[in-house]
Write a protein that binds this DNA or RNA. Structure first.
Lengths: 161, 161
DNA sequence: TGATTTTCCATATGGTGTTATATATCAAGT
DNA sequence: ACTTGATATATAACACCATATGGAAAATCA
């Protein structure tokens, strides 16, 4: 069965990137599930941003993640309910709500940094190894490699050398 | 403000591809809106698949688009209500529902092929022109170019040389 | 100071994707 | 023919992102 998205080249590059990104996220989810924490792979960037940049107001969090503000508000509410982030009002500006990692959030990030993020990073790096040439060719190679061996299986192999 | 997704390299490649794909789709939407047809950019691949491959049952449509079957079922229902696709039972297998372009659907695809798809394709090609090197570098260049000049503005310039 | 504009965040709504599951039909074996 | 299992599609439930909009606080300015 012909892959139409692929056939259309540049015309459907947006759909193709989105599709591939979602597949990578779904595969990464299976690796992350080993932490036994009930959060989605898409929530980790927010936690990682707080880890890397420190406490941030909602708007700056949205900027640093490159997504729209309502998405951050929703994620913060979710992660807040799970006790992974905390929200406190800004001292100087009552409109701002500063988001920071909670104790448990920090623990989770530390565990992830130690146990699973390296696996994912290595698996993706392996997936993208020795690529060259035009973007569309590189994408095709990645898609083919992923179809042959999923990211989470690559992570397993990397994890136990 | 640091782009965290970008900073994390391979670790957040999935989020990054999805984000970039969504941005391209959103930009393409603005170009497609010139057709005055109230459908989303993400629906065009389905129409394009029917145009390219002819009438197909739901399952094969899902395969050729690389998405899950329920997504196709929903899109077909939507496009059916808009009168752009038609569904007919298969002769030999009562379970199968064959999806095909309606008269209006064909008209829309023909107009899109003539008027807007080339613009989008050229704009994306321009966006990706003269790229080389590792995937992550190429992505960064695309992101930078897109931030400087959005895809729909590129399409305008390409349209009126 | 009081009025207006801007900024920040929350909420509402819509669209698309997923997985899990139900239903209907086909196919195969007894 | 009947039961059983596989297959095709629909439906339900959930996640995520976007735009539009509203309300509160801050900033600006007459």
């Amino acid at each position: 069965m012909e892959d139409v998205i692929r056939s259309f080249g540049y015309l459907s590059l947006g759909s193709r990137l989105k599709r591939l990104g979602e597949q990578l996220q779904a595969d990464a989810q299976r690796v992350l599930d080993r932490l036994d924490v009930p959060i989605q792979s898409s929530q980790y960037p927010l936690l990682a941003a707080l880890d890397r940049l420190g406490p941030l107001p909602v708007g700056e969090l949205a900027l640093s993640l490159g997504i729209a503000q309502p998405g951050v508000t929703r994620s913060v509410a979710l992660l807040g309910e799970l006790g992974l982030v905390e929200v406190s009002p800004s001292d100087d500006d009552q409109r701002r709500r500063i988001v920071s990692l909670s104790r448990n959030g920090r623990r989770l990030v530390d565990a992830a940094k130690r146990d699973v993020w390296p696996q994912i990073e290595n698996a993706v790096a392996q997936l993208c190894a020795n690529l060259s040439g035009p973007l569309l060719s590189q994408l095709a190679t990645i898609e083919d490699r992923l179809a042959a061996t999923s990211l989470d299986r690559r992570a397993e192999k990397v994890a136990t050398p």
